[in-house]
């Protein structure tokens, strides 16, 4: 099932960075887990600036610190050195209320899909204080509107175990978006799905991004996925990670799966692949 919006006038070209406020900024941020002899450097001094509304994909060899950047941006991890600024403020001070989704959809088995999706509303203000009042009306409609957008209309009253892996992952995206976060952090959300379901979900995610316009940081192993979805791709070196390439993706939107077989797209994939192969074999020389 493809969900395209051929009438959309949205273009894939990124807006000049200076004109848009910065959503995420890492300056010289490094992260080391553990202490003393057992210290593991996960991320070496990293500079990364993501503008509001951008869709950035992070690719790189496994264990290179992609997820660490994601956790820095969400405030779950504090930088060992350097500064992380999200939404104009330094992290650590307070919770960020970002939307997150992982490879494992982690729907709660005792709740219907609808109630699972509404879970963030139970926690985040200003929804939290109105939750009891609106959960049967406005909030439920909100959840179902999102479900409809990802092609799960009518599945709100089902339980998670009644849905397939692909359907659960769509519900997972809905849960990450229900509280209208300015920022969406995705850690290999489609890693456990088969090729066809994955391509279907790319289009759904693209569709969600084009309607809700959050800043997205996507961690993935799949280069086609990165090139299909992102407006910018950052390639990371092997552990301790740092960004070795940072380039915009200018294909027009909405992108289709057919586009991924065109020469330009394949060439981009080849280029990314070379970067990662190099990064795997040798430590990074320095950011470009």
């Amino acid at each position: 099932m493809m969900r395209m919006q051929p009438d959309s006038e949205f273009s894939g070209a990124p807006v000049p960075a200076a004109a848009v406020p910065v959503a995420i900024e890492l300056s010289d941020a490094s992260v080391t887990f553990g202490r003393g002899d057992r210290a593991v450097p996960a991320l070496s001094k990293t500079m990364l600036r993501i503008a509001d509304g951008e869709f950035v994909a992070l690719v790189g060899p496994s264990g290179c610190g992609k997820s660490t950047i994601l956790r820095l941006a969400s405030g779950l991890v504090q930088p060992t050195t350097g500064v992380v600024i999200v939404g104009g403020r330094e992290v650590a001070a307070r919770a960020l209320r970002v939307g997150m989704a992982f490879q494992n959809p982690t729907m709660l088995p005792w709740m219907t899909i609808e109630r699972n999706i509404m879970l963030p509303l139970k926690i985040v203000e200003p929804f939290r204080s109105q939750f009891r009042k609106l959960r049967k009306t406005e909030f439920r409609d909100k959840a179902n509107a999102l479900l409809e957008q990802v092609g799960l209309k009518g599945f709100g009253s089902r339980f998670p175990w009644q849905l397939s892996g692909g359907m659960l992952q769509r519900a997972n995206l809905c849960r990450a978006l229900i509280h209208e976060p300015r920022m969406l952090l995705l850690d290999e959300p489609f890693g456990a799905l088969d090729q066809f379901t994955r391509e279907e979900l790319w289009s759904i995610l693209q569709d969600l991004w084009m309607t809700h316009k959050p800043t997205v940081l996507l961690v993935t192993h799949d280069l086609r996925e990165a090139a299909f979805l992102a407006s910018r791709i950052c390639v990371m070196s092997a552990r301790p990670g740092r960004i070795v390439d940072d380039s915009p993706v200018t294909f027009s939107r909405p992108r289709t799966v057919a586009m991924t077989f065109e020469p330009d797209f394949v060439a981009l994939n080849q280029k990314l692949r070379t970067f990662i192969v190099d990064a795997r074999s040798a430590p990074a020389e320095g950011a470009t």
Partner: peptide, 26 residues
């Protein structure tokens, strides 16, 4: 599940929120 805990913590959930909404029903 640690992932779910991360999702909720990133939303600003307190330990008590997580205990009440996820931990205890689980």
């Amino acid at each position: 599940e640690p992932e779910l805990e991360d999702v909720l913590k990133a939303l600003g959930a307190s330990k008590l929120d997580i205990l009440w909404n996820v931990g205890l029903p689980r």
